[in-house]
């Protein structure tokens, strides 16, 4: 178990492309950190640098008390779960799980004990003598987990491990991985492009965009106080509504009309509001024209136009809704303001 520290880590590929700009953050012992961002944002590169599969161009990386920039992946005391599991197809589950131990000259008896223990933890006992090709996707995923768990590493690295599973299995494995990590208390870095996985699994989320960190925070912080319009629109399904607005005389206006909230400054801003922080209110300040009602059982999503801009509203199943014009009110303390130019939170 160990804390991980990245100091001014950069990655520049030989062709000059800067995949990760100078990045620093620390991960506490036992923490579950999720790196999330759209494809090409550098999250996998960052993880692979931590794993040692990719050279670090600049900066220093330490795991525990050791700077590991030039340490071989095998000696970094890490275990990694890959997107396609990367199981050895010609080995049985037992050998797959034990291969790392065997290479480290662990006595055969101990390997057997540890493999059995890991298999028991992951409910893999009936499959120990099967080949990976005879397993289902979820079972293969578990074998990949077993291979990581059995070595008792200081750090788990997950590279989009659930993206090859179907939605139902993904939900189930998400909980299993999280529970396992809690039980073992191993520091973990988890890379995903799925913001639901990030929200549900993380102790802390790091949102990346174009090789830069946009925001680091707990899921609640990221969700309720996004640091930029990028984070606001990337996290949450449906994303935060972003409206063009104006600041005048210490008040926020959307499309003229009634002031919505008090705020300092002047000029154009972007106003953000989560779909669930909007409510029907006959005395409300804004007109919302509903075009489409999405029925999701537990709740409904209403898509339409507000002040001639796309807008989504979330209402619970008790609230009836139909296409047409309604008056709505916004929850004042849920309003977020962003700089209209840079997109940064104000």
């Amino acid at each position: 178990m160990a804390q991980v520290s990245l100091q001014n880590i950069r990655k520049i590929y030989p062709n000059g492309y800067e995949a990760v700009t100078s990045t620093s953050f620390d991960i506490a012992d036992g923490e579950f950190v999720v790196l999330v961002g759209p494809s090409g944002c550098g999250k996998s590169t960052l993880l692979r640098m931590v794993a040692g599969l990719e050279d670090i161009t600049e900066g220093s990386l330490s795991i525990g008390d050791r700077v590991v920039n030039d340490v071989d992946p095998a000696d970094r005391d890490i275990a990694m779960v890959f997107q396609n599991y990367a199981l050895y197809p010609h080995m049985t589950v037992r050998k797959n799980i034990g291969y790392g131990l065997k290479n480290r000259k662990t006595p055969a008896q101990e390997i057997e004990r540890k493999v059995d223990e890991a298999a028991k933890m992951l409910n893999l006992e009936p499959y120990l003598d099967r080949k990976p090709s005879q397993l289902s996707g979820g079972q293969r995923q578990r074998v990949a987990m077993g291979r990581a768990v059995v070595r008792d590493p200081a750090l788990f690295l997950f590279d989009e491990p659930l993206s090859n599973l179907d939605a139902k299995l993904r939900n189930q494995m998400r909980i299993e991985i999280k529970a396992l990590q809690r039980r073992l208390g191993v520091t973990s870095i988890y890379v995903t492009h799925d913001q639901v996985e990030a929200m549900t699994m993380a102790d802390r989320i790091i949102v990346l965009n174009e090789g830069r960190i946009e925001q680091i925070g707990t899921p609640a912080e990221i969700y309720h106080s996004p640091a930029s319009t990028f984070v606001a629109s990337f996290m949450g399904a449906p994303p935060m509504n972003l409206l063009e607005a104006r600041l005048e005389g210490g008040q926020v206006f959307v499309n003229g009309g009634t002031p919505l909230a008090n705020a300092q400054g002047r000029g154009a801003v972007t106003l953000g509001i989560r779909p669930e922080d909007v409510a029907f209110d006959p005395a409300g300040p804004l007109d919302f024209h509903i075009d489409i009602v999405e029925e999701l059982g537990a709740h409904r999503l209403l898509h339409g136009q507000l002040a001639a801009q796309n807008f989504t509203m979330h209402v619970s199943k008790e609230v009836a809704a139909a296409p047409g014009a309604v008056r709505v009110g916004l929850k004042a303390d849920a309003l977020r303001l962003f700089d209209a130019e840079t997109g940064k939170a104000l």
Binding site: A51, G52, L53, D72, P73, A74, I78, A79, M80, F82, Q83, N84, A86, L87, Y88, Y99, G100, N103, R104, R147
Partner: peptide
């Protein structure tokens, strides 16, 4: 490629 990487991490 992942097989090579997994093996590297497994100390092969």
């Amino acid at each position: 490629e992942e097989l090579v990487e997994a093996a590297r991490i497994d100390g092969a």
